[in-house]
Each structure stands twice: as structure tokens, then as C-alpha cells.
Amino acid sequence: MPIHTETRTLLTIVTEGVVENLLLADLDRLGVRGYTITNARGSGAHGLRDANWDAATNIRVEIICARAQAENLIEFLREHYFANYAMVTFLHEVEVLRPEKF
């Protein structure tokens, strides 16, 4: 039996661990229904972020949603976070099972 999938958009946000609670409150307000957070390490415009202690932690937040909502979220992040926080965002087309969840 072929698997039925539908296309959704995966929005990935890599940012500073310190903004986690603030960001989650914003995502919640913007109607995000679910997300996954992992601790992350890396290097970029804000230098090495090796997660060795409080101020150097990074997180990666993944959200699967409709394309339009992902674009809204990015617009919001651009306005409120991009200027002052280390933040990288990107979009991916993904195939999901049980599309009603997203």
C-alpha cells in the first residue's frame, strides 16, 4: 500500500539559548501548534558558541506548518529578533504523514 503524504514546510530556527522562553511565548501567541527543540553548538557571525556554559548555549527549534504560517513566523522573527540576536532561519519542504497534525 502506498504511503499517503502531504507537503508542509519545516521552519528551522538556530538561536541563542537565552531567548528560549521568550521565543516560545511568541511562537505560542502566533498560533504554533507544536515544535521540537534541541541543544546546539556552532560557529558563525557571533563567534564560537560551544554550549560550554550559560551564555554560550544555542538551541535549534524546528516547526512544521503550512507555508503561509512559516512565512508569517519568519516575518515576525525578522522584525523582533534578527537585529539583536544570533539567529539563523531556513525553510524546507517536507513530506508529512498525518497532515492534520500540522
Binding site: 541563542e16 537565552v18 531567548v19 551564555a55 537585529a83 539583536n84 540576536y85
Partner: peptide, 10 residues
Amino acid sequence: PAAMRLAVPE
């Protein structure tokens, strides 16, 4: 640092 990062992000 944590509080300032949030309250005075610039």
C-alpha cells in the same frame, strides 16, 4: 548577562 540579553538586547 541573561537578564540584559533579554531586556536590553541591543
